[in-house]
């Protein structure tokens, strides 16, 4: 008991001394997918948590319940003198543009969109490069020579995943067949695991044995369908290998956590800069996930081919195709 008390006092002191240093007030805003989507938003949450435990600076976060709340949330935190507002998701682009021009003293970091304002840092990813690698994995692993892709909302940003995936698969095997579906055309497509799961079942029934889903929370439906039908799926954004061990071949990591962590870290040590930052394979922004759940599915030969392709993409020998307008500015 006494020990605990002493510990608490020490902790409180440590906390308050950290508080004496000019702490910044970072804020993290998720998109409508919600904080614990096991994918995109959760990656952002992990990044902020890492920053917070490392620096003992606490952060605020908020889950808007609809897109119309984006602007209200941004304005609210900007008015309350937050130092840095990190908004994750392409849906924030117009809202960040509007609010950032109204509050030039507040720093904004937006992920997945490009906003050209002196107080906005835009971070985008080369999702096509990471998708290229998981496309190779799918092509090397498939037995039916048919692979599937399920996108969330049908927008250029998600088409970019598909583009890289297809190119990577064809790089391994020129006559592989790709089946593609998109859950919808509105933001609700991110939150429809039931529809995504039906699409996945239909793709498996048509002969695909591996499906890559780039669909946020909807992708959980694809993983569920893989588990139910005894096929394989590929997760996205966060490492989703643990969601259904043995049925998730790998996950295309999009290091939103790294982006959020870096933005907050830079803001706290003063090196934060407005402008555009691209995170591709070279910068460690995208990758494929290997952990205890799926390492048995990779042979040394596969790994060697993947590392070779990675080196070629970084050196520019392989150019992964892109989709116009994936990170539009407003």
């Amino acid at each position: 008991m006494l020990k605990k008390l002493a510990f608490a006092i020490v902790a409180a002191f440590a906390g308050s001394s950290a508080g004496l240093a000019a702490d910044i007030q970072p804020v993290l805003l998720y998109d409508v997918g919600g904080k614990f989507d096991k994918s995109f938003n959760e990656a952002a949450h992990v990044g902020a948590e890492k920053f917070s435990t490392e620096t003992r600076i606490s952060y605020r976060d908020f889950e808007p319940s609809s897109e119309t709340q984006y602007e209200q949330a941004l304005k609210r935190f900007a008015r309350r003198k937050a130092d840095l507002i990190v908004a994750v998701g392409v849906g924030y682009s117009v809202a960040v543009r509007n609010v950032a021009s109204q509050y030039p003293d507040v720093k904004f970091t937006v992920i997945d969109a490009i906003i050209e304002l002196p107080n906005v840092q835009s971070i985008t990813f080369r999702e096509n490069e990471g998708s290229f690698l998981v496309g190779m994995i799918a092509a090397m692993k498939t037995e039916s020579n048919k692979i599937g892709f399920i996108g969330g909302m049908d927008i250029p940003l998600i088409r970019r995943f598909e583009r890289g995936y297809q190119q990577g698969a064809e790089y391994v095997n020129g006559d592989i067949t790709l089946i593609e579906n998109y859950v919808g055309t509105t933001p609700s497509a991110w939150n429809d695991p039931i529809k995504a799961s039906e699409m996945a079942r239909s793709q498996y029934a048509r002969g695909a044995d591996i499906i890559f889903s780039a669909a946020g929370p909807s992708g959980l439906g694809v993983i569920q369908a893989a588990k139910d039908t005894g096929n394989l799926s590929i997760g996205v954004d966060s490492n989703q290998n643990h969601v259904a061990p043995g049925f998730v071949l790998t996950s295309m990591l999009k290091r939103v956590d790294l982006a959020v962590y870096m933005a907050m870290k830079e803001a706290s040590d003063g090196s934060w800069q407005a402008g555009h930052r691209v995170m591709g394979l070279e910068e460690g922004g995208v990758d494929y996930a290997v952990d205890e759940h799926n390492k048995g599915m990779f042979t040394d030969e596969m790994k060697a081919r993947l590392e070779q392709a990675r080196a070629k993409i970084i050196s520019g020998e392989i150019v992964v195709g892109d989709v116009a307008g994936s990170n539009s500015s407003h």
Binding site: E67, V90, G91, S93, V94, D154, I155, P156, L157, T185, T186, P187, G325, S328, S329, H330
Partner: peptide, 21 residues
């Protein structure tokens, strides 16, 4: 509305279902 906003009424270069300003 969804059809119009990802089609004829979508803001130029935009990805979300919303019109131009």
């Amino acid at each position: 509305l969804a059809y119009l906003l990802v089609g004829p009424l979508q803001r130029p270069g935009g990805q979300m279902p919303e019109s131009a300003d």
